[in-house]
Design a protein around this nucleic acid. Structure first.
Length: 293
DNA sequence: ATCCAGGTTGTCC
DNA sequence: GGACAACATGGA
């Protein structure tokens, strides 16, 4: 893997084990938009970006090498050895299948506060609506940025900004009961009751307990935040889909080859089972079973 | 109309 | 500890 300036862009060549599409569309992030096949625009840390993939090259449009190293290298988890990781995971048959289904999947390292809010919003919600709520949150309360296109872009609002707002002021987001949870998160982060910086290094259970002081943060949301916002690959989000995976394939727990990074194994399994949902959906609902007699 | 969506909370036992 | 309804929105 090599990177260098190419005109106004940064060009990354020899990229392996990487799919921009699978990585950005698998439900771990909510602010990227596919402009054309394999061309995505999004905003990270108040920095708008358009990225495109062609085979084993990635182009970061209008980007300096310095910015690439400071932000995007980390964000896309480009330093991790996925090849070695996948080799080890593939000792297990189910994981091997899931990896072959989406070999370019990666776990992003997203901004912590944004990730916390995003996964509070995600609870009992669907991805399309999650994206809508987050978009409105940024438009209403974020800072306008001059983007790369003509449309105005907005940063993700700081915790301190949200902490001043009332539930009524959040009503236009149409976030339902989650609005109160967002405000509680904003207050606790602003006051330092929950110190986000410590969560990069705290023992995982301490980090979980810290996040769970926030109303609306239960075990699943806490682990999503730790995995996607802090690269804590020991975290293992158990949502409805992963519960089906565990029930169906791993009644005795994850295989030994996944120890150490269950969160990364989760990523392949989650994507696989969600895309092949006919394998996972319950055959019949209770009512229908009753009706059939 | 009813069910579901990357769950959590409060309230029972 | 586990079970279970309620919670707001919007799409299927």
């Amino acid at each position: 893997m090599n990177y260098a300036a190419d005109g106004e862009d940064v060009l990354l060549t020899g990229v392996t084990d990487f799919s921009l599409r699978d990585t950005l569309l698998c439900g771990q992030c909510f602010r990227w938009q596919e402009l054309a096949p394999d061309v995505f625009s999004g905003i990270v840390d108040a920095r708008p970006m358009t990225v495109e993939q062609q085979a084993d090259t990635l182009r970061f449009r209008r980007c300096t090498v310095r910015e690439f190293e400071r932000l995007w290298m980390d964000y896309f988890d480009l330093s991790r050895d996925y090849k070695a990781l996948k080799r080890r995971f593939s000792e297990d048959a189910v994981l091997s299948t899931a990896i072959r289904f989406a070999p370019g999947l990666r776990v992003l390292r997203q901004p912590a506060w944004e990730t916390l809010c995003s996964f509070i919003i995600s609870q009992n919600n669907n991805i399309k609506r999650i994206k809508g709520i987050i978009a409105r949150l940024c438009e209403q309360f974020g800072q306008p940025i001059h983007g790369q296109g003509c449309e105005p872009a907005y940063s993700f609002p700081d915790a301190a900004v949200l902490a001043r707002l009332s539930e009524q002021e959040l009503a236009p987001l149409r976030a339902g009961w989650r609005a109160a949870y967002l405000l509680d998160a904003a207050k606790k982060v602003t006051l330092g009751t929950v110190a986000l910086d410590a969560l990069y290094t705290d023992p995982i259970d301490l980090a979980r307990a810290s996040l769970r002081q926030i109303k609306g943060v239960g075990p699943k949301v806490a682990d999503c935040v730790l995995l996607y916002g802090f690269a804590r690959t020991e975290a293992f989000p158990l949502d409805v889909w992963m519960k089906r995976v565990m029930e169906r394939y791993y009644p005795d727990g994850l295989p030994a080859c996944a120890t150490g990074h269950p969160g990364l194994a989760q990523q392949y399994l989650f994507h696989y089972i969600r895309c092949c949902e006919e394998l996972a959906r319950p055959v019949l609902k209770k009512e229908k079973i009753a009706a059939v007699g």
